[in-house]
């Protein structure tokens, strides 16, 4: 009667003016990766992005909630200054430090039809927690 092992996944949740991003996964790291994928999905169709460019990112914060906000803000910064969209991530979290590799490609308005520019992570609905079944959830609202 074993249930299927949970696969990492992402979803959006409703916010009146902006967009909620949520990653759900067996590990904390994967939940952070999925939240980042949810953010890209708010901008463009994920299938349109090819993971040809690689960028390293690291950040730290005193707790998991603020670490998620920092992670998202670091990605927003890279997206903005490098002009890239990411669709694949490898995250390692060691206590209060996150290091990651993000894969993506340069924004091509024709190809990606980017709908919105993410301004930053808000503290609205910002929560990182482990559910009763052991899976991790990492979520926040991003301002667009």
């Amino acid at each position: 009667m074993n249930s299927q092992p949970l696969l990492p996944r992402w979803e959006h949740f409703e916010h009146e003016a902006d967009i909620g991003i949520r990653g759900i996964a067996p590990t904390l790291e994967q939940a952070f990766e999925q939240a980042a994928i949810a953010m890209t999905a708010a901008v463009t169709n994920l299938d349109l992005v090819s993971p040809s460019k690689v960028i390293s990112i690291s950040c730290e914060a005193s707790d998991n909630d603020m670490l998620l906000a920092s992670w998202i803000n670091e990605l927003v910064y890279e997206m903005s200054t490098q002009g890239v969209l990411f669709n694949r991530f490898e995250v390692i979290i060691d206590e209060d430090t996150l290091s990651a590799i993000a894969y993506g490609e340069a924004v091509d308005p024709q190809k990606h039809q980017p709908a919105v520019e993410i301004k930053g992570a808000t503290l609205t609905e910002l929560r990182v927690y482990q559910q009763a079944d052991g899976t991790w959830v990492a979520q926040c609202v991003v301002d667009v």
Partner: peptide
């Protein structure tokens, strides 16, 4: 543009972390 967004993001988290130091009890971290 990006400059305002970055300043907003940075100070939002800095202020959230500093509230306790300034003995401001916030009903909501935001």
């Amino acid at each position: 543009r990006g400059l305002g967004h970055q300043i907003g993001s940075e100070f939002l988290t800095d202020m959230a972390m500093a509230a306790a130091k300034y003995q401001i009890s916030l009903p909501d971290r935001e």
